[in-house]
């Protein structure tokens, strides 16, 4: 131990001695090397920083992909629809009441009524059930019940639509046939009902979010003047959360319009201008599937007609989405 200390001391001494004898210039040059080292490090860092400047560029390019997707959709639909309207007139498309593309009738109205029929039935099922579920979960259920039930309801939203289609065709249709014996095997009714079931979680979950966001003191104020739970729900919470609730309805409707597999499987492939839910119909979406699968030739009128139907569908859902965003932004109550 003694030797250790001595050696340290000597080495310090030596260093001091060396430093003393080295003269000022040497010390300066030593400082230079340190400086050089720092410079080199700075250079390296500069290089890294310059590389880092490229990162936001890459990230930005990725962000642009979403815009390109939208532009791509618009370009695809519009350019092919123009090709279609070069062969089939606007008036034929909108005014003719027959959709028989394989024999040259391109009147889109049966597909639109088919879509509206499905959407209408879905709304009748989903809005009362969805809203009631939301009110129950937000106003009546205990915290624990809500934490268990809400995710289970949301499972309904995660089930693949082909599974719903199977359910509609092999279970709901035979069930309804007990009540309405002359129901067709492929019919709008069971398709619409199952589409409605599919959008229940959209409506229930979003409405529940909107209602939970209504501050508790408003609720408590109403309870304090003697309101029942039902009165609080209907006269205080629902009006306060109305923008969110309506936005959830519109979003649900938009999903019902765009739903494809359930209606393709359960509602049939026969475009009929009817509002009779027991009939077999075809929607905009299920024609797109029918028109693209199989042996439709690229560039034929039928091929283009798929895009004309696609743009009709796109306009419908886009309008619904904008409406939903507008409602939730414009009529939002701030507390």
């Amino acid at each position: 131990m003694g030797t250790g200390i001595t050696s340290v001391l000597t080495s310090t001494f030596r260093l001091d001695e060396r430093g003393l004898h080295m003269g000022i210039q040497n010390i300066q040059s030593k400082e230079w090397t340190v400086h050089d080292q720092m410079n080199a490090k700075k250079q390296r860092q500069k290089k890294l920083r310059r590389l880092e400047k490229l990162i936001p560029v890459f990230l930005f390019l990725c962000a642009i992909i979403s815009i390109l997707t939208t532009l791509g959709i618009l370009y695809t639909l519009i350019s092919s629809a123009i090709g279609f309207f070069g062969e089939v007139s606007f008036s034929e498309f909108f005014l003719n009441t027959e959709w028989k593309p394989w024999s040259g009738s391109f009147g889109v109205s049966p597909l639109i009524t088919g879509t509206l029929l499905i959407t209408g039935i879905a709304i009748i099922v989903a809005i009362p059930l969805g809203l009631a579920t939301a009110i129950f979960l937000s106003e009546y259920a205990s915290d624990r019940t809500r934490r268990i039930v809400k995710p289970v309801i949301e499972i309904l939203a995660g089930i693949p639509t082909v599974v719903y289609g199977f359910f509609a065709l092999t279970f709901v249709t035979p069930l309804i046939q007990h009540v309405i014996p002359d129901l067709k095997i492929f019919n709008a009714l069971s398709g619409g009902i199952v589409v409605g079931i599919m959008i229940i979680p959209t409506i229930a979950s979003l409405s529940e979010d909107a209602m939970s966001a209504v501050p508790g003191n408003i609720r408590e104020g109403a309870y304090a003047v003697g309101a029942t739970r039902f009165e609080v729900a209907m006269k205080v919470v629902v009006p306060a959360a109305l923008s969110g609730i309506i936005a959830s309805f519109v979003l649900g409707i938009s999903r019902a319009i765009g739903e494809t597999m359930i209606v393709t499987i359960a509602a049939g492939q026969s475009p009929t201008l009817t509002l009779d839910p027991t009939q077999s119909i075809q929607t905009l979406t299920s024609f797109i599937v029918q028109g693209t699968s199989g042996d439709t030739a690229y560039g034929s009128t039928i091929y283009y007609s798929v895009y004309a139907v696609g743009i009709t569908l796109f306009v419908f859902t886009l309008a619904m989405n904008f409406l939903s965003q507008y409602i939730s932004r414009r009529f939002r109550e701030e507390y």
Binding site: T70, I73, S254, T260, V289
Partner: peptide, 15 residues
Amino acid sequence: IQNLAGVPSVVFGLL
């Protein structure tokens, strides 16, 4: 991005 989330899946198929 919000709007893309609302576009029906079958339209992505057309794209």
